[in-house]
Design a protein around this nucleic acid. Structure first.
Lengths: 217, 217, 217, 217
DNA sequence: TATGAATGAGCCTTCATTCAT
DNA sequence: AATGAATGAAGGCTCATTCAT
């Protein structure tokens, strides 16, 4: 145990402390390798407390996933809400996403990278959280497409495609961000917008990529 | 054990069988949840054989990672080698990537998604494999940039940035591919090229994204 | 907790409530599987109350055993007291026994079936209760024997033997009773009296069982 | 662990050793209080061996119940088979029962006294074993009744009633036997036959118990 | 080349019990 | 009179790993 004298703490507070710690530990070790012992220890309580409040390791993990996915979605929506144009909303949403993932690495790891080692129930919960995030992005993309010069050319699936690409890119770029301390989430967002969104607009405008070979024809 | 009569099989063959099975099991269950018992069982041998040939679970996992990362890199290089223009090389490389990841889901999962539940030694190995893949893509991107109208504007880091974005997008799009049986790795590649590469060329050409607001000024 | 608002309740009442519930729970789950948590819950109090009033799980169990064994003995004695002849007393006693065991299954289970999973102290307490019951029956049997035509032929031990047989039979017949809703404790008593007591009288009168083979000689 | 050097022992043997020990421990402590640790220890193996061979505590218990109930039934049937008359068969059966229960106290405890603390699955298994024993006895009783002077007066249920009474009495008398070292299972059987069977025959013959009061009328 | 037998260590979970209010 | 917060201890189960053959 961390050597602080444990004081009596009301349930609601303790519960959040436990989840805080759990996120860190799950992120660091992965679901299976994480031990409830360690979580209890770092939270400054004994193991039975964890079970008293959170019922089981599985449930504890689900609690982490739920809380963080809602936080992420919240950040996302709040950022997007304030903007007027779809372009700006997408940018703000992506920035919020980057910001959250950058600020809360552990949460994102718990939400995203806990691939396959999970029981079906948990996997479902994680999938749901993932889908929620994806849906937010896809919504923004759809709006952006709708305002483009040529909206008819792209449909539901295309928004989804772009959303997947953006989220995947963003996820991967978080690693990149870590190695580039001079960059900020905002700048990364701009770069990504330039790379992806400008491309998209051009595609919507009719320009398509073609191999140089065929281009010469 | 699977009910085949085990015949005496030379070491090299058995070893590969074990790795084949191990990749499947590691992908399905995750590193920790995977049990050597199950791997030995599915490989049709007894556990001591696994230890005799692969020394430890950790080592077995490393063997999986090494073999598959080399296969992926191989596919990548071979695809790129045949093409002349940087554009085409990049497309071919991405297509090879998609093809591999699509064909060998398990391998990719082992290479990529086994996020954090690994010991430091293994994590290092996986990171190395990941960096290798990233370096291949970054190389192609760099070549593409070099041939662009305005190469000076982008540097080493930008290639890396784009590579991260592309690999991340590609990874995420693999999930998308799974839900769209009508699509093929090739078509996804094209879509991604359109979305990302066209954008990049335009950026290189000087066009940048600006919020509609600032655009109006 | 059961959702009643707990009002301040005087100790004596609460204590009995707890024992009431405890008997049910101990009977249903067995000593070890019963949890103080569940008992407190069903009694509508918090766990510390249980410990305040009953000191320990062991003690709580002993309290149950004591109360119920006294109830059983009481029922027994009262039933027997009213009758004049030993025969009638035995019948009335057995009937009381059946009545109690049938009416208070849980109590009987706690008194009788909690075989061996108990600490020495508790086991002793249960044994004592059991012996008390047995002694009551043996007393009645002894009286009956004393009035028989040939009392000298049977002694102390024989009363004990018969008492054991009767109590064992009665216990087992309680199960039988459960599957025969048309029967009543009174009718079962009569049947048992017929089967056992008539036999006894005959034995006392000199008739003994002999294998048919030897009978033919 | 018992300080014998554990030697490699073939599975079949070890399995039986484990069950042997398990019966002792389950009988002594009850299902819940028994710990797999103790069983493994006394069997001279480590806990994982127990799980390797018997899968779970529950399963281990079921294995005990199955093996012993079959042994008991076997003893029963073999004893009864050799005799010609129903009377003799019943006596031999009861004697076998007493003999078994006396010789294998632990087995009988496991079969009979593990009242309620068991999961549904186990309870079912124990019930089945109990019913099997009861059915054997009821069969013998039925045969005896069939040869009685007045078979028509008693039916299916009566055999069952008597069987319950006999088994219950026998069970209870086992305790009595323990305190009377001069007695033997055979003698107890005779006594019980005298007490119960003679009574039954008389009942079948028309004699019934009546309270002395009513008798005098 | 191959395996049946065996275990130390660790993890999830639960329970009886107490402390501070 | 009453309870929410908290824990030491133990138990069931599994796993990576080895030994002897």
């Amino acid at each position: 145990m961390t050597e602080k004298r444990r004081r009596r703490v009301p349930r609601q507070v303790r519960e959040q402390q436990m989840i805080d710690v759990a996120i860190r530990v799950f992120a660091k070790r992965g679901y299976h390798a994480a031990s409830v012992d360690e979580i209890a220890d770092l939270a400054g309580v004994s193991k039975p407390m964890v079970y008293l409040y959170l019922d089981s390791k599985e449930n504890l993990f689900v609690a982490c996933v739920r809380r963080e996915s809602q936080r992420l979605a919240g950040a996302f929506q709040q950022a997007a809400r304030e903007k007027a144009s779809p372009d700006e909303r997408l940018r703000a949403g992506l920035a919020a996403f980057f910001g959250f993932v950058h600020e809360h690495r552990d949460s994102w790891v718990v939400l995203h990278r806990q691939a396959s080692e999970l029981s079906e129930r948990i996997a479902a919960e994680v999938s749901a959280a993932r889908r929620m995030v994806m849906a937010e992005v896809a919504g923004l993309v759809r709006d952006g497409i709708a305002e483009s010069p040529n909206p008819a050319r792209l449909g539901e699936d295309d928004a989804d495609f772009v959303a997947h690409a953006l989220v995947g890119a963003a996820d991967s770029l978080t690693d990149w961000l870590e190695n580039h301390p001079d960059e900020s989430p905002e700048r990364v967002t701009l770069r990504l917008m330039n790379m992806a969104w400008v491309g998209m607009r051009n595609v919507l405008g009719g320009e398509v990529w073609a191999s140089p070979a065929s281009a010469k024809r």
